[in-house]
Amino acid sequence: MVMAHYIGIMSGTSLDGIDAVLVTTDGRHIELKGRTSAPMASDLRERLLAIAGGGAVTAQQWGELDAALGRAYADITRQLLADTGISAAQVRAIGCHGQTVWHQPDGELPFSLQLGDGNRLAAETGITTVTDFRRKDMALGGQGAPLVPAFHQCVLAHSERLRIVVNIGGIANISVLAPGHPVRGHDVGPGNMLLDLWCRRHTGAPFDRDAALGRQGRVLPDLLARLLSEPWLALPAPKSTGRELFNDAWLERHLAGDEAIADVQATLTEFTATAIVRQAQQWPAGELLVCGGGGHNPLLMARLTALLPDWRVNTTNAAGVDMDAMEAMAFAWLAHQTLHHLPGNLPEVTGARRPAVLGAVHFPD
């Protein structure tokens, strides 16, 4: 296959913004050519948070959110093209994750729902667009997530040493890349989600920049123990989760109510780190490579390093892949897989009955 331009768009569970990347790939090799980010418009973010929190929504509101997200994705695509000097005609396709508003992988009728009108995105940009990556995997009995381990295998697998890639977005997920073994991976639990929620509630800031709040506090052992007692954490893989479980109400149930604000922030950081470390310690010591927003949290990175003294802990930047671009790059790569009728999921990771071509394709004309 020849190298071609693809765009990947990602807006994650944290709802802090939209990331877009331009890559060239042939499915086996991938090169990052450009990246841009934009904050999520505050009114759009608040409406999405209300839905993700289980709030009632009318059909009109639902449709308007879908259209508004499609337009926002088109806006950032145009910005990316302008920044890189690449024309829409030179781009083979856009892979757009969409905005997850509800993820229900278990129960009688499992489903995952992402908003962001792919038809509008294709029509406004003139670029073939692939969306809705998760539901085919779920139709085949899988969790629909995480999907990035297949991409991590493509760009970060090492022939001689174990690498565990930890994507710390709103939710944290791991990919276990062990030489000679199938890729393993699953969601671990909250990444930045609860940290952002607590920081926003008490400071008004969208996240704890440089862990300024968390570093003022101390870990509260009793609160940490209550957080770690969450039954979902002990479930075997395959498993995935989201804001439907780890939300404001969940956190409130575990608080005594008299904790200092900074102490809660420090304890939530320790909770995220401990949940990740418990999964890593099931494997021989190797490399732990962090991507996503969590890689910018110095307290979280320090705790991962301290809790894994025999491991080499770093960000994926050290392995040559931009930690901030990783997930958007994955969806650009998944668009390539779809258009070439190649599987995008790993049944060993998601639990699906078989590999499958993922996504819905929207043509611009």
Rank of each mutant, 00 (worst) to 15 (best):
M1S: 05
M3K: 04
M3Y: 11
I7T: 06
T13P: 11
D19W: 10
D26V: 05
R35M: 15
T36S: 10
A38P: 06
P39L: 07
P39E: 13
E46C: 12
L49F: 13
L65R: 06
A72Q: 13
A82R: 04
T84K: 09
T84Y: 14
G85H: 00
A88R: 00
Q90H: 02
V91H: 01
G95H: 14
W102P: 05
H103A: 08
P105Y: 01
Q114V: 01
D117W: 10
L121F: 06
V130N: 02
R135Y: 04
K136P: 06
A139D: 10
Q143G: 00
L156A: 03
E160N: 09
G169V: 03
N173A: 11
N173P: 11
S175D: 01
P179G: 03
H181Q: 13
H181Y: 15
H186Y: 10
P190L: 05
G191L: 07
M193W: 06
W198T: 04
G204H: 12
A205K: 09
D208L: 01
A211F: 11
A212D: 11
G217N: 00
L223S: 03
L223K: 02
L233N: 01
P238V: 06
T241L: 00
R243I: 01
R243A: 04
R243F: 03
F246S: 01
F246W: 03
D248F: 04
R253G: 06
G257L: 10
Q265T: 03
T269E: 08
F271W: 07
T274E: 15
Q282E: 13
P284S: 05
A285K: 05
G286I: 05
C291Y: 08
T305Q: 15
R312W: 06
V313H: 02
T316P: 10
N317Q: 02
G320S: 13
E327S: 04
A330S: 12
N345V: 13
E348Y: 03
R354E: 12
V361N: 00
D365Y: 03
